[in-house]
Computed example of a mutant assay.
Amino acid sequence: MGGRRSRAQGRPRLYGWMIALAAVVLLVDQTSKIWAVSALSGGERITVLPRLLELRLWYNPGAAFSFGTGATPVFAVTTAIAVAGILYAARRLRSAAWTWVLGGLLGGAASHLLDRLLRSPGFGRGHVVDFIDYGGLFIGNVADIALTAGCALLALLTLRGIPLGAEPGDERP
């Protein structure tokens, strides 16, 4: 009976950690976008690693690789559904590793949703601020890094068979 009680107490703690991680991702992403808009809006480019990484401002109306540029409202709705789905799924959260996955995904998705809702050209049609240019292959932002890392860890946990509701200690090293 004591084990059942400690597991129940662990769920709210992990949920809280997931929310905290999501908040950090959202804060860092939005702060970095504020910086990018102020520092790079005149067409400036900052080379970080020649031919590999530079900073330049891009307003993305679409999804990854500017796919679906005419479907910005659809992306806003889809992202809102994803945020709600992550929050719903996280109610079963009992795994530290899944806490990282869901926190990164939630923070990245919530930050993109804020861009879609609050940025120009208008509510539900806003463009996502991208500014990290990866050698001309694509341009992203901090939220994209969190989303990519979250998806990679999600795939790893799934391949290893670690469920979202795994008991503490069930995670394999």
Rank of each mutant, 00 (worst) to 15 (best):
G62R: 13
H112D: 02
G70A: 10
R92M: 05
G43D: 09
E44Q: 08
R125L: 11
L159V: 13
L57H: 10
L117W: 02
L53Q: 01
P163E: 10
W17L: 15
R45G: 07
R125C: 10
P168H: 07
W17V: 14
I132M: 08
G124F: 02
V37R: 05
G165N: 14
A71F: 12
G107A: 07
A96Y: 10
V74G: 10
G126V: 01
R116E: 13
R91K: 13
S38E: 15
W58E: 08
A109V: 02
W58V: 15
V74S: 10
A20N: 05
L164N: 00
G135D: 04
D133F: 00
T99P: 12
A110V: 02
L159T: 14
E167R: 15
I34M: 13
V101P: 13
L93E: 04
D29R: 12
P61I: 05
A64C: 10
A110S: 13
F65K: 05
G42S: 12
V77E: 06
A39K: 12
S38M: 15
V77F: 11
E171H: 03
G68T: 04
S66F: 08
P50K: 05
V48F: 00
R4G: 02
T99Q: 06
L114Y: 10
V129Q: 01
R7E: 14
L52C: 06
L55T: 03
Q30K: 11
V77I: 12
D115E: 05
S41P: 04
L153D: 06
V48L: 08
D144R: 02
F65H: 10
I132A: 14
Y15H: 13
H112W: 06
I19H: 01
E167K: 14
A146I: 03
V25M: 04
A109D: 01
G108H: 02
G42R: 15
V74A: 11
R56S: 09
T158L: 12
A36C: 03
A63M: 13
L87Q: 13
T69I: 11
C151D: 03
I145T: 04
L53W: 07
G2Q: 11
G43N: 12
L102K: 06
A36T: 08
I145W: 14
L49P: 05
G43T: 13
E44T: 01
V24H: 02
W17I: 11
L27H: 14
A84E: 06
V83G: 05
A143L: 08
S111P: 06
D170Q: 14
L114A: 00
W35V: 15
A76Y: 11
G70W: 00
A90L: 05
A155C: 09
R91S: 13
G135K: 07
I81M: 08
P168Q: 14
L137P: 08
T72G: 04
L147A: 11
R13P: 01
M1A: 14
W35N: 07
L87C: 13
R91E: 08
L147D: 00
A8Q: 14
